[in-house]
């Protein structure tokens, strides 16, 4: 059972490739509370992105379970599409739909999946666009935007579905350095508004400043977990110490 404030509970999550020879995830257990900002760090190939992508089953786990609002997402009978509507996802490469305007990118989900009228959906989309300073680009196509703008649109596109949790998969890794700030600012605002967030990132500054909890993953396992203070100022494991020495 999960307590009332637990949004996602992950139990012994495993993702094996090639008949178990490669263990991308090797038994990860954790839980994510409502309003929490969980930042996942770790070296590349550690399984942190795989973990995030398993949370909404873009990657199908080979073992363990994921309880989201008390439904086990790994159960084949669960309607994953319905749950995904409540789990917004932001990708490293934005993945905006290039054949649609920004506004259409944002409204197609609410209109087709939540039965919103075009008017309602556009009103919400415009409010969100205004908040990230892009309302004047509503009729533009994704190819006309900069990387930072694209990622801000991707974030508000996910927000249009009114999700319970936002999953960020290295949201700033594909950006030019001068555009990282604008995207992180949007994420910080979200965190301040108590949006539940799970963020895979290399931005240690962001983790330190915004995270309520940091999880250090290596070799498909949780090596260390704690407040930013504990992780960054007082790392216990050798693996984390050497990782931080390299990235900080």
């Amino acid at each position: 059972m999960t307590t009332d404030s637990t949004l996602i509970k992950v139990i012994g999550l495993e993702k094996h490739f090639a008949d178990g020879k490669v263990k991308a995830l090797d038994g990860i257990s954790t839980s994510i509370q409502k309003g929490e900002v969980v930042v996942i760090i770790g070296p590349s190939g550690s399984g942190k992105s795989t973990f995030l992508r398993c949370l909404n089953l873009l990657e199908v786990p080979t073992g363990g379970s994921i309880l989201f609002e008390n439904d086990d997402l790994t159960d084949k009978k669960v309607d994953i599409n319905r749950h995904r509507q409540k789990m917004g996802m932001v990708f490293q490469h934005f993945n905006l739909f290039p054949h649609m305007t920004i506004l259409r990118n944002m409204t197609i989900g609410p209109i087709k999946l939540q039965g919103k009228t075009q008017e309602e959906a556009e009103k919400l989309a415009m409010t969100l666009l205004e908040r990230v300073g892009l309302d004047h680009r509503a009729e533009a196509y994704p190819s006309q935007l900069s990387g930072g703008q694209k990622q801000r649109v991707a974030i508000v596109r996910a927000l249009c579905m009114k999700p319970e949790v936002m999953l960020f998969d290295e949201p700033t890794s594909a950006l030019d350095p001068e555009m990282v700030g604008e995207v992180l600012d949007v994420m910080k605002t979200l965190a301040r508004e108590s949006m539940t967030m799970v963020v895979v990132t290399h931005e240690m500054g962001f983790a330190r400043e915004v995270a309520s909890r940091v999880i250090f993953v290596d070799g498909g396992k949780v090596v260390e977990e704690g407040t930013p203070e504990e992780i960054f100022s007082n790392p216990k494991s050798e693996r984390l110490k050497s990782f931080l020495a390299k990235v900080l």
Partner: peptide, 15 residues
Amino acid sequence: IDDGQFEAGRSIGFN
């Protein structure tokens, strides 16, 4: 078409 497009569609909740 890039797999990312597919994933973006699925992650919004489209079947």
